[in-house]
Design a protein around this nucleic acid. Structure first.
Length: 950
RNA sequence: GGGCGGGUAGCUCAGCGGUAGAGCGCUGGCUUUACAAGCCGGAUGUCGCAGGUUCAAGCCCUGUCCCGCCCACCA
């Protein structure tokens, strides 16, 4: 093919770099990734909306994992004939991206206000181009196969149309409203946050500071309150006591004198806010800076006094403390209270600090006017969708968490005082009027005193629209009709990390149901988080972040730590890094180029739903070896196939093979296909991976190839030893190879494409392996008889090998080998397979086959293999190599094992309740085993007598 | 305070009621013309602890101890 990538001869070792650079363009050129929105396309539809990466930098291991799992799902479905859409894109990530760019500015000694809003936005767009470009390259390197033509950025103009449409509709429905209430404020980012964006830092060391308020006009009476935040007392508007508390009855209705500001603070009674058993039983109430106090204030009609500026300093209402930042205000207030003789001591106190998810700054509850979205109704619908099974959450353990969140959800504060994001489509008039509209209303001109609301929407607002906004909503596009899972039979998966279950998944559920009247996906697949080898979360601070590209292309540890901990001393960073990845410690100066497929395959070998997935570099190394194995097995196979050309009609490809080895390997393949398919279907990609691994390495390479090698390899004179076995073996080998590649393609797209292109294949296949089909029962079938026979053969061969190995017989040294069985059928079977013993055990000597009971040469070592058809004796002539003592010792060892097994079975079968209550097949199997073991023990007893006579 | 995971070989982890597994590591042997990134052998487990259910328990139930994560307004 003229457009084929160059295909030089197979190198001796697998080189990931050369192979992986060859195929991506090829796939794109052949439209492998394309999904079709043609209404006449009758194929079943499968959709995965890609969680759009934030344009905050570059991808990390978590993204690599996302990418691997989703790409495996989409390729698997594509190969099975689905019209598969993996919808790609990127997220503007409002606050996160703005923070990144502001930090850059900070290094230049500037703030965003120096630039002005317009210039600043330009600057962010520039950053978006860089970061987005980097991410796109990374995704391609990872082999991701989304439909790039449909890629969307959450700030694209058409996405903005969707955002405005959603906002306006919600407003018109009365769900979106503006209100003044206590919200979470990040003084560092200078914006409001939603509840979800506040993280609590547990176990922070603080103190519980106590001070006294004096009763107004009665200096001798006081009430002591305790607080972890003394500075907030500047905003106190009440002190609450429990109505039933006898200690404070005399204070009910009294007024207290605020020591610093000209204000009287009433003593109120409140059974909700006060726990009599805690402290002094008196609580200071600061309605403007504490969520509990805010609620208490509402109950009692208390004044809300905001004492902070937007960047967290004390404002003019803080009297003489005005201008101090929060930290200094705290010490100053304490000191001032002390000087007034009002301080009553402090004790250590462990508290939970609310911190901003982005800046890490301590979040301040503040009274503020913001846009809110009513959640209750939408939350109910989202709950119902999961409970009715319209959307399935996998693994189910997350349902409770999902429920708990939605059942307790508060209204969503959606406005942010940022510059990077979708500006709110609301206009404020000169007299406080507000108009909400899709487009700027004609009358709302600046000349008339109207301005657009300067705030932007929470970045998750646009994310919540992702599953349908990317398909063209609100326009009724063919793509929307095709891919949004309105039809209940349509399959659609959302794969993402459980960490954004609330931020994103729940909100998409709510918006999907609200705007599209149907759930946005049929299954939610929640995967775990990638952590370092010791189980620690990856973070810049810990210096354990790994760029997936460094694993793929290779990198020295020095280079890597420079990126992870920029600016830190190298030795220190290196220590941190190696501590996080102990298995990397003996990998020299760095990671070799493991290649994409090895990294992907490794990520796929962890059960995706495990909460923590500890990345072990050694495991990637092991899987790189597997790729090398695949590569070399192909080299051998192509040599053995010797120009074999696939011909469905004449060479028995579609016919079932007759020879045991061929039947067996197809049976094993069928098993691997079934396990693999079940794994992909159940989001247990690790099971798909290990089924393929075991099949290919153990069954195919270690056994099948070793068995057919002597059959297919020509002798020196260019002829085959047994020509009659050749056609079937070639057809089977070709079939197994081609099917194996297809089986593994979703996990390892590059190497499988490369080798598939070189291997014989049916004429019906399309240009790329990516078009499939994924293997099915038509490719191979289970053959229980072949499995059983081969298992016997393998057990006998292994026993003979063990004896040889124990006595240090070299592979090339011939040794007399005799196999005995009392069962004529077994004997005939082994005779028929004499070649196997020659190939695999004793290359320079033919085995003999005997009935049980014949005399044994002195110096012959024996092993007994129990089989379903009676024991098989494996006799290895070791005259002069083994002493009677050694022989006795090894027989004793075998005997011990057998005796243990027999004892266990006897105990089991001796129990009447087992006979009565266990399933009959289990009982029968145990009986058979016991008989076989006893029989084998009898053989060993005789062998022992012989050894004693030596 | 509530919820969810995890504790299985030296390490990272599978294990689906029926005689404990993989990779890496350890160890003995092998230049066996696909692969030393390999091949053939070997060793290594009171399956966190205590009870219970069952003919049979890493697996199910109860309790308990550690580790991790999430949610929650105790000053």
């Amino acid at each position: 093919m003229s457009d084929d990538p160059s295909t030089p001869d197979l190198t001796k070792a697998y080189e990931s770099g050369a192979v992986e650079s060859r195929w991506y363009d090829f796939w794109e050129k052949h439209g492998v990734f394309d999904a079709s929105d043609d209404p006449n396309d009758a194929r079943p539809v499968y959709v995965i909306p890609m969680p759009p990466p934030n344009v905050t930098g570059s991808l990390h291991m978590g993204h690599a994992q996302r990418c691997t799992l989703e790409d495996a799902l989409i390729r698997y479905h594509r190969m099975r004939g689905f019209n598969a859409l993996w919808q790609p894109g990127m997220d503007h990530a409002g606050i996160a991206t703005q923070t990144v760019v502001e930090r850059q500015l900070q290094r230049e000694g500037k703030t965003r206000r120096d630039l002005g809003r317009e210039e600043f936005e330009k600057r962010v767009w520039k950053w978006k181009a860089e970061s987005g470009g980097r991410i796109a390259v990374q995704q391609r390197v990872l082999g991701a196969s989304p439909d790039w033509k449909r890629s969307k950025f959450t700030m694209d103009p058409e996405m903005n149309v969707a955002v405005r449409e959603a906002f306006v509709r919600l407003f018109e429905e009365g769900l979106m409203y503006r209100a003044t209430r206590l919200i979470n404020w990040c003084p560092e980012c200078r914006t409001a946050l939603s509840d979800l964006e506040v993280e609590s830092e547990e176990g922070a060391n603080g103190e519980l500071f106590e001070f006294a308020y004096k009763v107004d006009g009665d200096e001798s009476t006081e009430i002591i309150v305790a607080t972890t935040r003394p500075e907030t007392m500047l905003g106190d508007t009440a002190v609450a006591v429990h109505p039933d508390d006898p200690r404070h009855k005399h204070l009910h209705g009294k007024k207290l004198k605020h020591p610093f500001v000209d204000r009287l603070v009433p003593v109120i009674t409140d059974a909700v806010a006060v726990d009599m058993k805690f402290g002094t039983g008196a609580v200071k109430i600061t309605p403007a800076h504490d969520f509990n106090d805010f609620a208490t204030g509402k109950r009692h009609g208390l004044e809300e006094i905001n004492i902070f500026t937007l960047d967290g300093n004390i404002n003019e209402l803080g009297g003489k403390f005005a201008g101090l930042d929060r930290k200094h205000a705290r010490t100053a207030v304490k000191k001032a209270l002390d000087e007034l003789g009002l301080a009553r001591g402090a004790k250590p106190h462990v508290l939970t600090l609310p911190r901003c998810q982005r800046s890490g700054g301590v979040v301040e509850p503040m009274i503020s006017t913001q846009w809110f979205l009513k959640m209750e109704g939408m939350a109910k619908a989202a709950l119902e969708a999961v409970h009715s099974g319209r959307t399935q959450i996998i693994p189910e353990e997350w349902i409770k968490t999902y429920d708990h969140f939605l059942e307790n959800i508060q209204d969503w504060c959606v406005s942010r005082q940022l510059w990077w994001g979708h500006q709110i489509p609301a206009w404020h008039g000169p007299n406080g009027e507000i108009k909400v509209a899709r487009e700027k209303p004609a009358e709302c001109t600046e000349a008339n005193g109207w301005t657009q609301d300067p705030d932007v929407l929470d970045t998750w607002f646009s994310s919540a629209l992702w599953p349908f906004a990317t398909l063209g909503w609100p326009a009724q596009t063919p793509a929307l009709a095709k891919f949004y899972p309105t039809n209940p039979k349509q399959t659609s998966d959302l794969e993402t990390g459980y960490d954004i279950l609330f931020f994103w998944v729940a909100r998409m559920m709510m918006f999907g149901i609200h705007f599209m009247k149907e759930v946005p996906f049929r299954r939610v697949l929640l995967s775990g988080l990638i952590v370092d080898e010791t189980g620690e979360k990856m973070s810049k601070v810990k210096g354990n972040v790994i760029d997936p590209l460094d694993l793929i292309h290779g990198a020295t540890f020095a280079e890597m730590v420079k990126k992870t901990l920029p600016g830190a001393p190298e030795a220190e960073a290196m220590t941190k890094f190696k501590k996080a990845y102990p298995s990397a410690a003996n990998m020299g100066n760095g990671f070799p180029a493991f290649g994409t497929d090895a990294v992907r395959f490794t990520l796929a070998t962890y059960p995706p739903t495990n909460k923590r997935i500890a990345l072990a570099p050694k495991r990637i190394e092991g899987n790189r070896h597997f790729l090398n194995k695949i590569w070399n097995a192909t080299r051998l196979s192509l040599e053995l196939l010797d120009g074999y050309a696939w011909n469905d009609a004449s060479d028995g490809t579609t016919a079932a093979p007759k020879d045991l080895y061929n039947r067996w390997i197809l049976s094993r393949l069928a098993n691997a296909i079934a396990t693999s398919k079940a794994g992909h279907d159940a989001f247990r990609v690790d099971e798909a991976a290990s089924a393929a691994y075991r099949f290919f390495w153990t069954d195919l390479c270690d056994w099948y190839l070793e068995l057919v090698k002597p059959i297919l390899r020509k002798r020196e004179d260019g002829t085959h030893a047994k020509p009659e076995l050749v056609p079937e073996a070639k057809a089977t080998l070709a079939r197994v190879l081609e099917t194996s590649y297809r089986l593994m393609h979703p996990l390892m797209p590059f190497i499988t494409e490369e080798l598939w292109q070189r291997a014989p294949r049916p004429a019906t296949r399309r240009e790329s392996i990516a078009f499939g089909p994924f293997p099915t029962g038509e490719d191979a079938a289970i053959d229980a008889e072949a499995d059983a026979k081969m298992a016997t053969l393998q057990a006998v061969i292994t026993a003979a090998r063990t004896i040889r190995s124990e006595h240090g017989i070299k592979y090339a040294d011939p040794v007399p080998l005799a196999l005995r069985s009392a069962n004529a059928e077994v004997l005939a079977f082994m005779k028929e397979r004499a070649g196997a013993f020659s190939f695999l055990v004793n290359p320079k000597g033919a085995p003999t086959f005997e009935g049980i009971g014949g005399a044994r040469e002195p110096g012959t070592t024996v092993a007994v293999v129990p089989t379903a058809l009676g024991p098989i004796e494996v006799l290895v002539g070791l005259k002069g190599l083994v002493t009677a003592d050694e022989e006795r010792a090894r027989i004793a060892r075998e005997m011990k094992k057998l005796e243990k097994d027999i004892a266990m079975l006897e105990k089991k079968l001796g129990s009447q309740s087992f006979i009565d209550r266990a399933p009959p097949d289990v009982v029968a199997e145990s009986r058979g085993q016991l008989e076989s073991f006893r029989d084998a023990k009898g053989r060993l007893d005789e062998a022992k007598k012989l050894a004693d006579e030596l």
